[in-house]
């Protein structure tokens, strides 16, 4: 069976700085994977390598049956991508509907106008993140959490086979986190492969099917309950991490999210 996503001995360097070293993992079927690690551990680089945005120094990548970087444009047409919100200048003059429709634009050939189907898909996606009332609102008028939801709606609007999200839970309140994670879980249940990069471990416990602990190389990869233990987390974050049980919930503490 062809895996949905796989890398074998993947290494990536920026100039003379090694960002990823011999990363090997495989997702056999669509699932929800969280990639966890400290800052500068190569999480974003791994997402970029899967899309062929950065070239591998060693190793091979296969995504949705295509070799990357050779078939990177075929892969990108099947992907919904959410960048780190902080990288976007929110003061650019665009409305919420413009942002959500951008995803649809990317999947069309140049010069082809947006159809009613595109508008309907965009509205459905915005509704999924509970932001449909903001369709005509300027993007800059939204709070950080609302902007994050709109960016997720843009990725959903393309009806992707693979959703890649870079720190979607960063700097958003608990209510927004709940909405985001619910939507992502629903997408995974529908057969979409969801790969999310995050610092925040606690929401993953019940929602993520698999977790990859990454610190330049794969420290651990497996089912969430197998991987999230104190020893592996300490090895990943290079500090003591505590896992405690409280009212049937597992809580991770000791990760410095802003380190």
């Amino acid at each position: 069976m062809t895996p949905v996503v796989s890398t074998r001995n993947l290494s990536v360097a920026y100039g003379d700085r090694l960002a990823l070293e011999y990363v090997t993992f495989e997702l056999i079927r669509p699932a929800f994977l969280s990639i966890v690690g400290p800052n500068a551990s190569g999480k974003t680089t791994l997402l970029k390598a899967l899309l062929g945005i950065v070239e591998p120094l060693t190793g091979s990548i296969e995504v949705l049956g295509y070799k990357v970087p050779n078939d990177k444009y075929k892969v990108r047409k099947l992907v919904g991508y959410v960048p780190q919100r902080e990288r976007i200048d929110p003061t650019k003059p665009v409305l919420v509907k413009d942002v959500v429709l951008m995803g649809r634009v990317a999947k069309k050939g140049w010069g082809r106008g947006l159809s009613r189907e595109d508008y309907e898909a965009a509205k459905r996606a915005l509704k999924a993140v509970e932001m449909e009332a903001f369709w005509d609102e300027p993007y800059v008028h939204l709070s950080g959490g609302q902007q994050q939801r709109v960016l997720i709606a843009r990725a959903l609007a393309v009806e992707p086979k693979l959703l890649l999200l870079d720190e979607p839970l960063s700097g958003v309140d608990a209510a927004t986190q709940d909405v985001i994670l619910r939507v992502l879980r629903e997408e995974a249940n529908r057969g979409v492969t969801v790969i999310m990069v995050t610092h925040d471990l606690n929401p993953l416990m019940e929602l993520s099917d698999y977790v990859m602990l990454l610190n330049r190389t794969v420290i651990a990869f497996g089912k969430t309950h197998e991987v999230l233990n104190e020893e592996l987390l300490a090895k990943t974050f290079m500090r003591r991490i505590s896992i405690v049980k409280a009212e049937e919930k597992i809580i991770v503490s000791g990760v410095d999210y802003h380190a």
Binding site: I53, G80, M102
Partner: peptide, 12 residues
């Protein structure tokens, strides 16, 4: 113009 990173990632 709004988000070159996502535009690249999503196929432009």
């Amino acid at each position: 113009t709004f988000d070159p990173e996502a535009a690249e990632a999503m196929g432009l």
